[in-house]
């Protein structure tokens, strides 16, 4: 199966960017990786229901303290008045 992989499209989905050289290397990598991942056999699909959560083991609805805003913001590259700040998002 010959695939035409759109590196640019995938990169944009993954929020990554590559220059022409890197893109060329990636295209080559992809070819060999996908060959290697290759012809995966088609097998019978059976949704395994053995590992299910029991409803009464779910978390109870009780509040517990989180992390203080000061500590959270210490890690933020940029913050202002308790908010995390980023360049202006155009929501349109």
């Amino acid at each position: 199966m010959k695939r035409r992989i759109d590196i640019k499209h995938i990169a944009s989905l993954a929020k990554l960017s590559f220059d022409d050289q890197e893109t060329a290397i990636l295209e080559k990598n992809f070819e060999s990786i996908l060959d290697f991942a290759g012809e995966l056999p088609i097998l019978v699909d059976a949704d395994d229901m053995s590992d299910v959560l029991e409803l009464d083991k779910l978390r109870d609805d009780h509040i517990s303290a989180g992390i203080s805003v000061d500590i959270l913001l210490k890690q933020a590259p940029s913050s202002l008045n308790g908010f995390i700040s980023v360049p202006k998002v155009i929501e349109n």
Partner: peptide
């Protein structure tokens, strides 16, 4: 802009193998 910020930060912050696997996984 913010898009650019995310793309550049990720492209510079991650190494080659990590980016390669992210691309493979996204695909």
């Amino acid at each position: 802009d913010i898009d650019d910020m995310m793309i550049q930060s990720r492209s510079e912050g991650f190494g080659e193998e990590v980016k390669r696997r992210i691309m493979l996984g996204t695909f």
